[in-house]
Design a protein around this nucleic acid. Structure first.
Length: 473
DNA sequence: ATGTCC
């Protein structure tokens, strides 16, 4: 006679869905010699005291599974918030779909307070490039990005545009003499630079950070690869700027874009791994793993991130110091800003951690630099403090073509024609950095008029980037 | 972005 016990009976008896229920159903089927009531009573006993049935031929598998289940560590995956939180988007028509999807996932983190997407946004690891995320008491290493502290620095010189045009060869020579590009590139021996950042106490907080010191010392003042550059250009102020104390006019300027080199990348990789171990998230959010700001790991990352930021700043300072001395100029104004970083800020009346991953800080009257491309203008801007945008703006024009697509579709001839047309001299760079690979900076600026006000326009003239596939030392 | 695994 069959006992006809089904899954519902077992669920009602308190068995859990999944592997255990499957084992219990198999056990029930093996208990056909018993009546329904007898079998259910027995299965209840197995559920409550599995250790008593480990030697029972018919119930051993179920009892073993139950004991294993009881000793399995609890599922530590942190659930995403299901309710959809709104976030501000600027220049939606210029933003690729993948970036919006990534931002939507970031908005579902339980630590998220607010988010915003800038008009140059595109897909990245975890948080999109051009994404801004404010969190409560949590820092996300991939919300900052791999190149921690990556930034722009601009020096405006007391040299009129005409004096530059009269002697371009000299400026080209000094640019080559005093900058270093390429993966792994650094300075050695007597060419090594020095800066107070190398004496920072933060290098001593952990053995992991300490071992980064030597490479940091040799890479100080170098620029790296990818979209990093150092360039001479002409900056135009259409009217006198009171805060900068600069008269209307066209001046020679130096603009640099680079980050924290191998040091920042190593810190980013190490703490991302640690965050992923400590903060398990569903697959689609795995790269958004965070560190609690009150935890040891969170505090370590915060210090290391700030060190990498100071280091990136020091690299620009060395570059600008060397080139300023080489041309014998006086600096009228200097502006710089990180665009891959996290800050403690007040947003909507509460303290939050604002992650800007490829986004320019644009708090009220905060100055920033938004570059275009090697031929398109860059802009010196003043923030408008737009709260919906979490006091941010784009960090450039943003790519229109992937690196691969640019290399496939753009010819050297096309690139040379654009450079010539714009009167730009280029040292290094591959087709993946061609102007056509980037969006129209004027459209991008148009999409963020509520975020920043343009103060001056910068036209690149002599641009240096890493050579194609560069590995030089 | 990064000697593309600390």
């Amino acid at each position: 006679m069959e006992n006809r016990i089904n899954g519902d009976d077992l669920l009602a008896a308190g068995y859990k869905q999944g592997r255990i229920l499957g084992e219990a159903l198999k056990a029930a089927a093996a208990l056909q010699h018993l009546s329904r009531e007898e079998a259910l009573a027995l299965l209840l006993k197995v559920k409550d005291y599995p250790e008593n049935f480990l030697d029972d031929e018919k119930l051993e598998a179920l009892a073993t599974a139950m004991i294993e289940e009881m000793n399995k560590p609890a599922d530590t995956t942190i659930a995403l918030v299901t309710e959809k939180k709104e976030y501000a988007v600027y220049g939606k028509e210029y933003i690729e779909e993948g970036a919006g999807k990534q931002m939507a996932v970031a908005m579902q983190l339980p630590v998220t307070a607010a988010g915003a997407l800038m008009p140059d946004a595109h897909q990245g690891y975890g948080l999109p490039i051009g994404g801004v995320l404010a969190t409560r008491n949590a820092v996300i290493p991939y919300g900052v990005g791999v190149d921690i502290g990556c930034r722009m620095a601009l020096s405006v010189f007391d040299i009129p545009a005409d004096a530059f045009y009269a002697n371009e060869a000299k400026y080209k020579r000094e640019l080559i003499a005093h900058t270093k590009f390429g993966a792994g590139a650094g300075f050695h021996g007597q060419y090594k630079a020095d800066h107070g950042v190398l004496d920072s106490d933060t290098f001593n907080i952990t053995p992991f950070i300490k071992q980064l010191h030597d490479k940091a010392a040799s890479q100080l003042g170098s620029s790296g690869g990818g979209n990093h550059f150092v360039e001479w250009g002409i900056i135009e102020f259409e009217e006198r700027d009171e805060a900068l104390n600069i008269e209307k006019g066209k001046y020679l300027a130096l603009l640099s874009h680079s980050g924290s080199r191998g040091m920042g990348a190593t810190i980013a990789g190490y703490y991302t791994r640690l965050a992923k171990d400590l903060c398990r998230l569903p697959k689609e959010a795995a790269n958004l793993a965070w560190l609690d700001m009150d935890s040891e790991a969170g505090q370590e990352y915060w210090l290391a991130m700030n060190l990498a930021g100071d280091y990136a700043s020091a690299c620009h300072e060395v570059i600008h110091r060397k080139l300023t001395a080489a041309i014998g100029a006086r600096v009228l104004a200097k502006v710089e800003n990180h665009h891959n970083f996290a800050w403690k800020e007040i947003w909507n009346g509460e303290e939050v951690i604002v992650h800007r991953k490829g986004a320019t800080p644009a708090g009220k009257d905060v100055m920033g630099i938004i570059p275009g491309s090697m031929t398109a203008p860059g802009f010196l801007v003043r923030g408008l403090g737009n709260e919906a945008a979490i006091n941010s703006a784009s960090h450039g024009a943003g790519r229109q073509m992937s690196r691969t697509k640019a290399i496939e579709q753009i010819s050297k001839k096309d690139m040379q024609a654009v450079l010539k047309e714009n009167g730009v001299t280029l040292i290094g760079a591959g087709l993946d950095e061609a102007p056509m690979a980037y969006k129209d900076i004027n459209q991008v600026m148009g999409a963020q008029q509520e975020l920043v006000k343009v103060v001056a326009k910068f036209e690149p003239k002599i641009v240096r980037m890493a050579d194609d596939g560069s590995r030089e030392d």
